[in-house]
């Protein structure tokens, strides 16, 4: 899948590296050529110098063939504009914009643009750490290249064991939540429909994990 990322700051470059490691075709757009240094030596994707709110720049970057579009420049207004160009002029299927202002983020969601608000999410995560809430603290647990993901068990997977979902060195199920109770997973634990599992996943296995659990999502979900 081809992904276009506008903005090569901390979030943009980290996301680019994650998607690249997962085997996707990644193109990063930024006005400042120096910003691409953040991508490091291992990055195999492409970079385009230019503003992400320009039709011609996005066309040159290959927006017409992109399956996903992410706007993470440091300006909320730029991000929504880039997202609207992606949606209305390139008809890209999946579009995500980072919007710091929660009120406007909600407004833009009505336009069919998925928005991620680090203000709300960040505040909630800090609160959870502060209050020592066990589940959310576990969710934000993320070390280096390995990500902690959560997913809900669907009816077709009910009755399967934890070991049926694990892949050696790539996917490990750590905890299971049934209702309000959380327990550490064992190999022979049987999963029930509606159980929420927390798994530790290697970057190259994220797609595989997402396919297995169609409802999988990254823990930093929209708050």
């Amino acid at each position: 899948m081809r992904y276009l990322i506008v903005g090569c700051g901390r979030v943009g470059s980290t996301l680019a590296k994650l998607l690249d490691a997962d085997g996707h075709e990644v193109i990063v757009v930024d006005e400042d050529p120096n910003a691409f240094k953040r991508l490091g030596q291992k990055f195999k994707g492409h970079v385009v110098v230019g503003t992400g709110i320009d039709y011609d720049v996005l066309k040159h970057a290959g927006a017409a063939q992109a399956g996903g579009f992410v706007a993470v420049t440091n300006g909320d207004n730029r991000n929504v504009m880039a997202a609207l160009i992606a949606q209305r002029m390139f008809h890209i299927k999946k579009i995500v914009a980072r919007i710091y202002d929660p009120t406007r983020g909600m407004m833009y969601r009505e336009l069919g643009i998925d928005t991620v608000c680090p203000t709300t999410t960040g505040a909630k995560m800090i609160r959870d750490v502060l209050m020592e809430a066990p589940w959310d603290t576990l969710q934000s647990f993320d070390f280096g290249n390995v990500t902690s993901l959560t997913a809900t068990v669907g009816s077709s997977d009910a009755g399967k064991r934890v070991s049926d979902f694990e892949r050696a060195g790539r996917i490990r199920i750590a905890a299971i939540r049934t209702g309000k109770s959380v327990r550490v997973a064992a190999n022979d634990t049987v999963l029930a429909e509606g159980d929420e599992i927390n798994a530790i996943v290697a970057p190259e296995a994220i797609s595989e994990f997402a396919q297995t659990f169609a409802g999988a999502r990254i823990p930093e979900k929209v708050g």
């Binding site: 909320d76 207004n77 929504v80 504009m81 609207l84 406007r104 407004m107």
Partner: peptide
């Protein structure tokens, strides 16, 4: 002077 700012003004107005 910025298109993105003008766009947001229009979005808020229309809403």
């Amino acid at each position: 002077g910025d298109d993105e700012d003008n766009l947001v003004v229009c979005l808020i107005t229309k809403k």
